[in-house]
């Protein structure tokens, strides 16, 4: 048998198999639920962003601050929604910070707590137990503490977080922060900045 011909055929079959697997296992399309408490902005905006974040991830904190500044400049042109993707194998407080955020969202205070939690990430991330800090932040954000503690003790909030993480994995997410800008997947803050500049040149 001709080695060159056979080799080329084998390599082409391999490439075809991988391309086929890539298409077959390809990520699902993301849908935006505009009713969600973890959203802000104009639901009819031309730029819709879904961000999957881990509250203990430093790059996510940078992304949240960057998006906040951007949003303040273009409040009517943007719609932002946060989803949970706690990297529990890397960050010890990823789940508990997400739980506090979810329980705050149920009281309509997600953004108020987010505004306290994210800027102080580098401090609470180093604590053995950040819960006293989160409780103080929750009070400062105006949460009902009894309702908060009931929510934290329930399995329901944890299930929402785990379900969102599983959904994120089905979309092909492997790391945080991952954004979907008008459905296009963008990973990391460098790509976020590049992508946003295509929608808002000069910003």
């Amino acid at each position: 048998m001709n080695k060159l011909l056979s080799g080329v055929v084998i390599v082409l079959v391999l490439i075809g198999l991988v391309v086929g697997a890539k298409i077959y296992l390809g990520p699902k399309k993301i849908q935006i639920n505009v009713q969600m408490a973890r959203s802000k902005g104009n639901p009819e905006a031309r730029v819709k962003i879904v961000e999957f974040i881990d509250f203990q991830c430093p790059a996510c904190a940078f992304g949240v601050k960057y998006l906040k500044t951007f949003f303040e400049k273009h409040p009517n042109d943007m719609y932002i929604q946060v989803k949970y993707f706690p990297l529990t194998n890397m960050h010890h407080h990823a789940m508990v910070s997400a739980l506090y955020s979810e329980c705050a969202a149920r009281q309509g205070k997600f953004w108020a707590l987010d505004d306290l939690m994210i800027p102080q990430q580098s401090q609470w991330a180093q604590l053995i137990s950040p819960e006293p800090v989160f409780q103080a932040m929750a009070e400062q954000a105006g949460l009902n503490i009894d309702q908060l503690n009931t929510c934290l003790a329930s399995d329901d909030a944890r299930k929402v977080i785990n379900d969102e993480k599983s959904f994120g994995q089905s979309l092909g997410i492997a790391s945080t922060p991952t954004y979907f800008i008008n459905g296009k997947m963008v990973v990391g803050t460098k790509s976020l900045q590049v992508e946003l500049k295509t929608y808002f040149p000069g910003s």
Binding site: V18, A21, K22, L25, P27, G172, I173, A174, S175, T178, M185, V186, V187, G188, K190, S191
Partner: peptide, 18 residues
């Protein structure tokens, strides 16, 4: 190679950027 190819390319782009 398979691990990277079967995941969206943006994930590996993030690694390269790092």
């Amino acid at each position: 190679g398979l691990g990277k190819l079967l995941s969206p390319y943006q994930n590996f782009l993030y690694v390269v950027q790092a």
